[in-house]
Simulated scan of single mutants.
Amino acid sequence: MEGGLKMPNNNRTHISIIADILDTARQYSYEGYDEGAPVTHLIRKANVPHRRLSSIVSELKAYGLLSEAPDSKYRISEKGMEFLNSYNQFKGFAESFGLKV
């Protein structure tokens, strides 16, 4: 198919929401903040309701991709960094073929 597969721009995948959450946690973990990302910032970046975010965050913590600080702020783990880097590489690879991830 010429031009690759087309997907609607408004449909984000679960994995892209996870990547948004991890990327926000990364920014707050390593870019001068050092205390982690507050829930409100994760909600804003992921653009999901609080209940859905809580479910995803629980999943990410269970997989060891995210950790929670005592003050309910979230930091990305080394495993989370590996996941995010791999996701970004795959996303770039897929997009080079005209696919949207």
Rank of each mutant, 00 (worst) to 15 (best):
Leu65Gln: 03
Tyr30Thr: 08
Lys73Tyr: 12
Val48Leu: 12
Arg52Lys: 15
Ser54Arg: 09
Pro70Glu: 00
Pro70Phe: 00
Leu60Tyr: 02
Ser72Asn: 14
Gly36His: 06
Tyr28Pro: 01
Val48Ile: 15
Tyr30Ala: 07
Ser54Val: 03
Leu42Phe: 03
Ser58Pro: 04
Ala37Trp: 00
Val57Ile: 13
Gly32Asp: 01
Leu66His: 03
Val48Lys: 15
His41Gln: 14
Ser77Pro: 11
Ser55Tyr: 06
Glu59His: 11
Asp71Arg: 12
Leu42Val: 04
Leu42Pro: 02
Ala69Gln: 15
Thr40Ala: 14
Glu35Ser: 15
Leu60Glu: 02
Ser55Gly: 14
Leu53Asp: 08
Lys61Pro: 00
Tyr28Thr: 04
Ala46Lys: 05
Ala46Trp: 04
Asp71Glu: 14
His50Lys: 15
Asp71Gln: 13
Pro49Ile: 13
Leu60Ser: 05
Gly32Ala: 00
Leu66Ala: 07
Tyr33Trp: 07
Ile43His: 02
Ile43Cys: 03
Glu68Thr: 11
Ala37Thr: 02
Asp34Val: 03
Glu35Asn: 13
Glu68Asn: 07
Asn47Gln: 13
Ser67Ile: 11
Tyr63Met: 11
Ser72His: 13
Ser67Asp: 09
His50Pro: 05
Asp71Ser: 12
Leu60Trp: 00
Asp34Gly: 01
Pro38Arg: 06
Asn47Phe: 10
Asn47Cys: 09
Tyr30Cys: 05
Ile56Glu: 03
Ser55Trp: 00
His41Asn: 14
Ser54Trp: 02
Ser72Ile: 06
Tyr33His: 08
Gly32Glu: 01
Tyr33Pro: 01
Ala46Ser: 15
Tyr74Glu: 01
